[in-house]
Amino acid sequence: MTKTQNNRAWFLVLPVLVLVAMNAIIPLMTVVNYSLQETFGDNLFFWSGTDNYVAVLHSPRFHAALLRQFAFTFIILLIEVPLGVAIALAMPRAGVWSSVCLVLMALPLLIPWNVVGAMWNIFALPDIGLLGWGLNALGINFNYTNQPVSAWFTIVLMDVWHWTSLVVLLAFAGLRSIDEAYYRAAKIDGASRWAVFRYIQLPKMRQVLIIAILLRFIDSFMIYTEPFVLTGGGPGNATTLLSIDLVKAALGEFNLGIAAAMSIIYFLMTLFVCWLFYTLMTQGKEDAA
């Protein structure tokens, strides 16, 4: 929609533009630059065209990391979205308890990511950590430092603990926007709890759930700090997700060209998924109009 022109408005947008340029556009262009060249240090660059991309796309190591990444994202979405919705549904809709629940829910989101990693690192240790010790005491052989299954279990659990709250808060906001009359009408219509969820709450939460899934997808794709602190990508490469792999390539092996190509591929994939979600969301709006 065209608004009446007021050129002063551009000044208000300017800081954001500058910030976005510094944060995103300039680094992105640098990365594109790196990805098309080969370097051995000393600021010596050789043009290599798409060689880096071809190498990355054919590398079994990249395939493995990508597969692990998708597996991880898929698992956490599968757990966090239904769990978040379930918790939001169980929360009191108004009153003091509602506020108490909201504050409790927000707590994990307020903790710095590296602290989350460190916390779970200790919590899951088989000798002194409550979780690790507890599981072993129950007769389950659990040691995330040398068992891939244990490591996966720990990082998934940590992510669920850390991020389910986000889904809860969004779903709760969606639920709060439903007029009381809908619940009354459903009661009068003799609707079961499930029917209320299926025909009132879920359709009304659709928009926020898409946003929740989108945010969790992007965030889980970027996940680095917590698994780095917790497992460092191990044991072996068992929990080496995309960004850990990327950092290993860039800083561990100083393969800047390869790492840059990886990050561009990785960026394009995220962009594609975002576009997919955006289309879904705008279509949903047209349906509702």
Binding site: D179, A181, A185, K187, I188, G190, P203
Partner: peptide, 17 residues
């Protein structure tokens, strides 16, 4: 309400979208 066998039409339309 659900045990009273009443029906109600509200101020703002309530339909299952």
């Amino acid at each position: 309400p659900e045990a009273r066998n009443i029906a109600q039409v509200f101020q703002f339309p309530v339909v299952y979208d």
